[in-house]
Each structure stands twice: as structure tokens, then as C-alpha cells.
């Protein structure tokens, strides 16, 4: 990685972090758990990394297996996370 590329990645990291700090404002207490669960599903973005690990770099047995394990786990995180959040929020509407 060239230092220019690294600096751009660090820009992204810093600005996205500030955005993350600002995004959460006055959250009503009832939304604490759904918000936590929803952002947990977003952290399943590591699924993108797992897909890449299964593919272009996974031609050794050990790394390929690790990549596939990661893919199964990340899929559970993403699919389960969004479904659970949706179930929680569906309950809210009824009230």
C-alpha cells in the first residue's frame, strides 16, 4: 500500500468515525436494543471481507477454510441481525 492510499483510508476512517459519533442523538430508551441490534447487523459487513477471503486469496487449504468459516459466521450475523431487529421493531408499531 502506498502512503497516499493509506492516508485516504485514514481519512475515511476518521470522517466516518466522526459521522458515527454524530449520528446517535436523543434515542428514546425503547430504541436502545433495536439500535444496538441494527448496528450489530451492519458490523456484519465483514461478510465482504469473508467473501474475498474465500476467493482470491483462499487458495491454500488453511486460509480457504478460515475464509469459509468466516463467511458462514458473517452470514449468520447479517441475516440473523437484520431479522431480529425487524422483529423487534415490528412489535413497536403494534403498541
Amino acid at each position: 500500500m502506498s502512503s497516499e492510499a493509506l492516508i485516504i483510508l485514514i481519512y475515511i476512517l476518521v470522517l466516518a468515525s466522526f459521522l458515527g459519533f454524530e449520528l446517535i442523538a436523543k434515542v428514546p430508551p425503547t430504541l436502545h436494543t433495536p439500535l444496538m441490534s441494527g448496528s450489530n447487523a451492519i458490523s456484519g459487513i465483514t461478510i465482504v471481507g469473508a467473501l474475498l477471503a474465500c476467493n482470491e486469496m483462499g487458495y491454500s487449504t488453511l486460509s480457504k477454510w478460515l475464509g469459509m468459516i468466516a463467511l458462514v459466521l458473517a452470514t449468520i450475523n447479517v441475516v440473523g441481525g437484520y431479522t431480529v431487529t425487524d422483529r423487534m421493531l415490528k412489535m413497536f408499531k403494534k403498541k
Partner: peptide, 14 residues
């Protein structure tokens, strides 16, 4: 990086 740091930062505030 974007999604990770969004969750990392907003998670701390939450």
C-alpha cells in the same frame, strides 16, 4: 472501513 467505523463510533455513543 466506513461501515466498521460507523458502528464502532456510534456504538460507543449508544
Amino acid at each position: 472501513i466506513v461501515a466498521g467505523s460507523l458502528v464502532g463510533a456510534s456504538g460507543i455513543i449508544l
